[in-house]
Simulated assay, not measured.
Amino acid sequence: MKHAAGTLAFLARCVVAGLAAAFVIGLLWPASGERLRARLHLPVAQTNDAPPLHAPASYADAVAAAAPSVVNIYADKIVNERAIKMYDNPILQQMLGGTLTTYARREQTLGSGVIVSAQGYVLTNYHVISHATDIQVLLYDGRVAKATLVGADDETDLAVLKIDAGNLPVIQLAEQNLRPGDVVLAIGNPLGLNQTVTMGIVSAVGRQLNASSAEDFIQTDAAINLGNSGGALVNTTGQLVGINTLLINQTTNTKNIGFAIPAGTAKKVLDQIVATGHVVRGWLGADYTFVPVDANSGLPPAARGASVVDVYPGSPAALAGIQSRDILLRIGDDDIRDPADLRRREAAIKPGTKVEISGLRNGSPFHVTATLAERPPMSAAAATDNGEQQ
Score class of each variant (00 low, 15 high):
1 M>A: 14
9 A>G: 12
10 F>R: 14
11 L>A: 14
14 C>M: 15
14 C>F: 09
17 A>F: 11
18 G>K: 08
19 L>R: 15
22 A>P: 08
23 F>Y: 13
23 F>G: 15
24 V>I: 06
26 G>F: 10
27 L>R: 13
29 W>H: 10
29 W>N: 11
31 A>W: 09
33 G>F: 14
39 R>I: 14
42 L>W: 11
45 A>H: 04
48 N>S: 14
49 D>F: 12
49 D>M: 12
57 A>I: 08
58 S>G: 05
61 D>K: 13
61 D>I: 11
63 V>K: 02
63 V>G: 07
65 A>V: 11
66 A>P: 04
67 A>I: 03
72 N>Q: 05
73 I>S: 05
73 I>A: 04
76 D>P: 06
78 I>Q: 01
83 A>Q: 06
87 Y>V: 03
88 D>N: 02
92 L>I: 08
93 Q>I: 00
94 Q>K: 10
96 L>E: 00
99 T>N: 06
113 G>Y: 03
114 V>H: 07
119 Q>Y: 10
120 G>E: 07
121 Y>G: 12
122 V>R: 04
124 T>H: 07
125 N>T: 09
126 Y>G: 13
139 L>H: 12
141 D>M: 13
147 A>W: 10
155 E>V: 10
158 L>W: 02
159 A>L: 11
162 K>W: 04
162 K>Y: 08
167 N>W: 10
170 V>E: 08
175 E>G: 15
181 G>L: 13
182 D>H: 05
190 P>W: 02
190 P>K: 05
198 T>Y: 06
200 G>H: 09
201 I>M: 06
201 I>P: 02
203 S>R: 03
204 A>L: 00
207 R>M: 01
210 N>W: 07
212 S>A: 11
230 G>N: 02
242 G>H: 01
249 N>V: 09
260 A>L: 03
262 P>G: 05
267 K>E: 02
267 K>Q: 08
272 Q>K: 06
273 I>G: 03
273 I>M: 00
275 A>R: 12
275 A>D: 09
277 G>M: 09
278 H>S: 14
281 R>I: 08
284 L>Q: 07
289 T>Y: 10
290 F>D: 15
293 V>D: 07
299 L>K: 13
299 L>H: 07
301 P>Y: 09
301 P>A: 14
303 A>T: 11
305 G>Y: 00
313 P>W: 10
321 G>C: 08
325 R>M: 14
332 G>E: 00
337 R>M: 13
337 R>V: 12
339 P>G: 01
341 D>W: 04
344 R>T: 06
347 A>F: 05
348 A>E: 05
349 I>H: 00
352 G>R: 04
352 G>N: 04
353 T>V: 01
360 L>Q: 09
361 R>K: 07
361 R>F: 14
361 R>I: 11
363 G>S: 03
367 H>Q: 15
368 V>H: 02
368 V>S: 02
371 T>F: 07
371 T>D: 07
375 R>T: 00
375 R>E: 10
378 M>H: 02
379 S>T: 04
381 A>N: 10
382 A>W: 05
383 A>L: 12
388 E>I: 12
388 E>P: 09
